[in-house]
Design a protein around this nucleic acid. Structure first.
Length: 508
RNA sequence: GGGCCGAUAGCUCAAUUGGCAGAGCAGCUGACUCUUAAUCAGCGGGUUGGGAGUUCGAUCCUCCCUCGGCCCA
């Protein structure tokens, strides 16, 4: 039996000496009639606002009466003297120094000063002044403890560098890592900008089911769950696609949705089981229109976030100025491997190339065109990694694009594009299939793959076919991976750095 | 799924052919009413991720497990 288990504790977690000391301080405060988890602190001014309000003052121009202020935040630095102390208070990512003197606080000083710790949350009221060294400071006339922190913060200088701890205890990471706070503020700005952009372009934002009786709109394994009252199986959506197109049938001409998709797949620096996508559909438009819209969105977004269309991503300098480069899928592969057009769909030739480059040969999968996997392997290994500057890949063969509409000019090619930036697949768009009979045939063919073991093939959605039978106008649709876009614009190579709470295994 | 790397005090990190596990910050005690990573003096703090093996002796070597990071698939 661990001796620590015998010590007083309010929870199941073991306590360090630090915690025991802090809990004792907290209990002392209670005995003196001070609530360590104080009341609300109304009419508080943010430190950001206080700094803005006083930023033009200098020690020479500060005249009586000096401004007063009422702020609140967490003590992140603490410099104590005999009967006075300086503390740095943090509110959001902003910091302000307060100066607390026994002779100004009277009896309150002794009660509080001895029991304050780094990490405590306080409210302070006082008068603005400059110290000898010119630091803007609040001379405190009233100080209240708003929340006692009974766990010590990480090293005030080194912060939290253990990646695992930063993901698992994001609350601590946010307190001590200004960069982390900044990423999520930026993420919010990005999403807000996209919404405004889409609204300005005549799209309306909609919300469609996250729980679907028939998962569809992508090739991926879904998460499943159960609805008790209706006693039915439901699936967390892998894409909103089929619902959004139903809305186009219903007469909405431009819709978008920014929300989570769920795919029951592995976790990596580029994949999280739940991730955020924007999907949007425009009736009467073509995938060419969507490419233009995407170029415009990305370059104006870069201007908004960075004040420039030039951004840094890892070792690369990337220009998001439009237009973006366009290349053909097959030609890109052909160029990389010195193939002639008659080799493009020749399985033996493609396998030969893979062998010669010592690349893995994919296994044939039931119900899936083998050539698609061969081409994709070549594409992913030789083409994607070098697509650093924004590039639209177009001209995808029908064999690897089961959801897209065939081109009128060349039935073997689809009217589809994918956008790559910094080696990341960022967007995927195409002209939508609107022939209900062809749609049904593709559903049934996918059903066959499904029955022969392809767990990524979705089941037929007969209601969607019925919707198409009422008539879907020619429509172009696109999905943009929001997490990857945030990675790009915040220069992060792991998706976990742009998710507040990435999925991790349970703690040991 | 595979390879490499990592897990030591609350945090950041040391250490030992295999021989009492150390520092800085944080904490505690004391001094100090203009500091800003405050300073000065003193003190306490460890199941070295978990388990097994080898050994007189394991934080260190071997094996298994857990969690994470990076790369590959």
């Amino acid at each position: 039996m661990n001796s620590k288990k015998n010590l007083p504790t309010s929870g199941p977690l073991e306590q360090s000496e630090h915690e025991r000391v802090r809990r004792q301080k907290r209990d002392q405060l209670l005995l003196r009639g001070i609530d360590p988890y104080g009341a609300p602190f109304p009419n508080r001014e943010s430190i950001e606002s206080l700094k803005k309000r006083t930023e033009r003052l200098t020690p020479d121009t500060l005249i009586e009466p000096a401004p007063t202020a009422r702020i609140a935040g967490r003590i992140v630095l603490f410099r104590k003297f005999g009967k006075a102390f300086f503390a740095t208070v943090q509110d959001e990512s902003h910091r302000f120094q307060i100066y607390v003197r026994a002779d100004l606080l009277g009896e309150d000083y002794a009660d509080l000063a001895d029991s304050l710790d780094l990490g405590d949350i306080v409210g302070a009221e006082g008068v603005f002044f400059f110290t000898k060294t010119g630091e803007p400071t609040l001379s405190v006339t009233s100080l209240v403890l708003l929340a006692k922190s009974v766990r010590p913060l990480p090293d005030k200088w080194h912060g939290l560098s253990d990646q695992e701890a930063r993901y698992r205890q994001r609350y601590v990471d946010l307190i001590v890592t200004p960069d982390t706070h900044h990423i999520f503020v930026t993420r919010s700005m990005i999403v807000r900008f996209i919404r405004t952009f889409m609204d300005r372009h005549g799209f309306i934002e909609v919300e469609t089911p996250m729980m679907q009786p028939t998962p569809g709109g992508a090739l991926a394994r879904p998460f499943s769950t159960h609805h008790n009252a209706l006693d039915m199986e439901l699936y967390l959506r892998i894409a909103p696609e089929l619902y959004l197109k139903r809305l186009i049938v219903g007469g909405m001409t431009r819709v978008y949705e920014i929300n989570r998709n769920f795919r029951n797949e592995g976790v990596s620096t580029r994949h999280n089981p739940e991730f955020t996508m924007m999907e949007f559909y425009a009736a009467y438009a073509s995938y060419e229109d969507l490419m233009s819209l995407t170029e415009s969105l990305l370059s104006s977004l870069a201007m908004e976030i960075h004040g420039s269309t030039e951004i840094q991503f890892g070792e690369h300098r990337i220009s998001l100025a439009h237009p973006f480069r366009r290349i053909s899928y097959l030609e890109a592969i052909g160029d990389a491997f010195n193939l002639s057009p008659e080799d493009y769909f020749n399985n033996e030739r493609l396998i030969e190339v893979l062998r010669s480059k010592n690349l893995p040969i994919p296994e044939a999968r039931p119900g899936k065109p083998f050539v698609a996997d061969l081409l994709n392997t070549l594409f992913e290994l030789a083409v994607e990694p070098v697509l650093i500057q924004p590039t639209f890949v177009i001209g995808y063969p029908k064999a690897i694009s089961p959801l897209a509409r065939s081109s009128q000019a060349d039935p073997e090619i689809t009217d589809r594009f994918e956008l790559f930036v910094g080696g990341l697949e960022l967007a995927n768009g195409f002209n939508e299939l609107n022939d209900p009979d062809e749609q049904l045939r593709r559903f049934l063919s996918q059903q066959e793959s499904r029955l022969s073991g392809d767990l990524e093939a979705p089941p037929p959605d007969y209601d969607y076919v019925r919707a198409l039978e009422f008539g879907l106008p020619p429509t172009a649709g696109e999905g943009i991976g929001i997490d990857r876009l945030v990675m790009l614009l915040t220069n992060r190579t792991s998706i976990r750095d742009v998710l507040l709470f990435p999925l991790l295994r349970p703690e040991a």
